[in-house]
Design a protein around this nucleic acid. Structure first.
Length: 455
RNA sequence: GGCGACGUGGCGGAGUGGUUACGCAGCGGACUGCAAAUCCGUGGACACCGGUUCGAAUCCGGUCGUCGCCUCCA
């Protein structure tokens, strides 16, 4: 291949040249959402980061040669709690949340993965994997209906997260202490009570532990080995560590994923995003506040994916402005060739900030065709950014009349009246612009309908 | 306590042994009745202390600071 792709592999902790297992069948698995609530912008980060990687792989290796799997976790205690709280069944919660997720991610312009497997459809594969792990003595059932993976049996346990077993043992959570051989052993299967979702199994009615679904689904769709496994950095331990253990041990010790990619965390206005701080921001919130999908993408991609990202509304507004500026000079079109300098930035461990820098250069040098290609690739060109906030037709007429009144005042040199009208409109969120003989206006994010009605 | 990341101009954010990143904001100018928008121009930086080097923001060591993971989490 002419353009070598380099990616930072969390497993080796170095940037490595990406060599596919099979150039005709590139396989990527990314951990998707647990569907119990609206996707927050922290959920959106991996979606957008790996969307760029997906697009890049398709660009480099041709669309048909790339398979992207992103799972949906629809078995989880948080889901159970939500269903119980709302007095509905679990399926209602998961179906509704999946619908939201799709809508929100589509809004962000993320391509849909080739497969979106759901845990509930793979329980039998999980049970098969658990049985195999038991038969190979990597796992053991207990009398009370649990099955645990025995971490001591897997010598590479801790390699991804750079942890040593004896260090981990200190300060480990005490749970099922009496039935586990080792406090670090993690659950593959756990018993369900009558209220909890459960499946019949050789170990009694129960449900799978969290980690096993990814191992089972990845194996079923992508095979024992594949190229890239991605997710948020917080998943390194224990989730991905456990996936490696389960998959490796049940797949004849074959190496699981070749590359492990992890995106950094996200803060909001300098603070950790958390429900207790009440700064929990969902994608839906942003949509409601009239931010465009491309601007959210731009904002998200203007920081390198491995860096922590501090989400600021000031930056989002800046992104919106930049994209409007660009989109006024380009027309949307099917993606063609990616400008060389942008490709070079992307193949260097997805340097999206550098790519954006290059786009600014293309704009400044009036290379609008190349800018258009880049914007198309990044999902930055969209009519959304060119539309101002919608206002009702009757109010639109009202603004037209006020603008006309102002122009009459200007003609008769009554500038104080003209300025008054302009300021009134501005305070209602309407920006008036005089260019040459023409006067135009547009509604801004600060539109105040009530104020406008009063004018 | 263990492991790890990071500290770049007002803000955001790349780069990385030897020429300006860049964007936004600021400032000056053009345009305008005045603005807005747009265009042109422009100042300003690499946490601190040592070391290596002809030369370090870039490598090495230390100090300070911020943050993350180790528990469900993207």
């Amino acid at each position: 291949m002419e353009t070598p792709l380099f990616l930072y592999n969390s497993y080796s902790r170095t940037k490595e040249a990406f060599k596919p297992l099979d150039e005709k069948n590139i396989r990527m698995y990314v951990c998707g959402p647990t569907v119990y609530d609206r996707a927050h912008i922290g959920n959106a980060r991996p979606v957008l980061v790996f969307d760029i990687l997906f697009r890049l792989l398709r660009y480099l290796y041709k669309e048909d040669n790339v398979t992207y799997v992103r799972n949906i976790t629809d078995i989880d205690d948080k889901i159970n709690a939500k269903a119980l709280e709302r007095g509905v069944n679990i399926k209602e919660v998961t179906e509704e949340t999946i619908g939201w997720f799709h809508k929100d991610m589509d809004f962000l312009g993320a391509l849909r993965p080739n497969y979106e497997p759901r845990a509930t459809d793979y329980v039998s594969q999980m049970k098969d994997m658990i049985s195999k792990l038991i038969s190979l003595s990597f796992a053991y059932p207990t009398e009370d209906g649990h099955v645990f993976f025995e971490v001591e049996q897997f010598s590479d346990y801790g390699r991804l997260s750079n942890k040593k077993l004896n260090e981990l043992k200190e300060g480990v959570r005490i749970e099922n202490e009496n039935t586990k051989k080792n406090p670090l052993d993690f659950v593959l299967w756990k018993p369900s009570n009558a209220e909890e979702p459960g499946w019949e199994s050789p170990w009694g009615r129960g449900r799978p532990g969290w980690h096993i679904e990814c191992s089972a689904m990845a194996k079923d769709i992508l095979g024992d080995q594949f190229d890239i496994h991605g997710g948020g950095i917080d998943l390194i331990f224990p989730h991905h560590e456990n996936e490696i253990a389960q998959s490796t041990c049940s797949n004849d010790m074959k190496k699981f994923a070749n590359f492990w990619l992890h995106n950094g965390f996200l803060k909001i206005e300098g603070e950790k995003m958390s429900k207790s701080l009440n700064n929990f921001l969902t994608v839906y919130d942003l949509i409601q506040r009239d931010f465009s999908g491309p601007a959210i993408r731009y904002n998200m991609l203007s920081t390198h994916y491995r860096q922590p990202l501090d989400w600021k509304f000031e930056r989002l507004a800046e992104a919106e402005k930049t994209l409007i500026k660009w989109n006024n000079r380009i027309d949307s079109m099917d993606e063609t060739e990616l400008p060389r300098q942008i490709l070079n930035a992307l193949v260097d461990d997805l340097n999206t900030p550098q790519s954006i820098h290059e786009m600014h250069q293309l704009f400044n040098n009036e290379k609008f065709d190349e800018l258009r290609n880049a914007c198309t690739f990044f999902g930055f060109s969209s009519k959304v950014t060119q539309e101002s906030v919608l206002i009702p037709a009757d109010l639109s007429e009202k603004v037209d009349k006020l603008v006309e009144k102002r122009n009459n005042a200007r003609m008769s040199k009554n500038f104080s009246l003209a300025d008054k009208i302009r300021e009134d409109l501005l305070s209602a969120g309407i920006i008036v612009k005089d260019s040459g003989q023409e006067t135009t206006w547009e509604s801004s994010q600060k539109l105040r309908i009530k104020k406008l009605k009063e004018l």
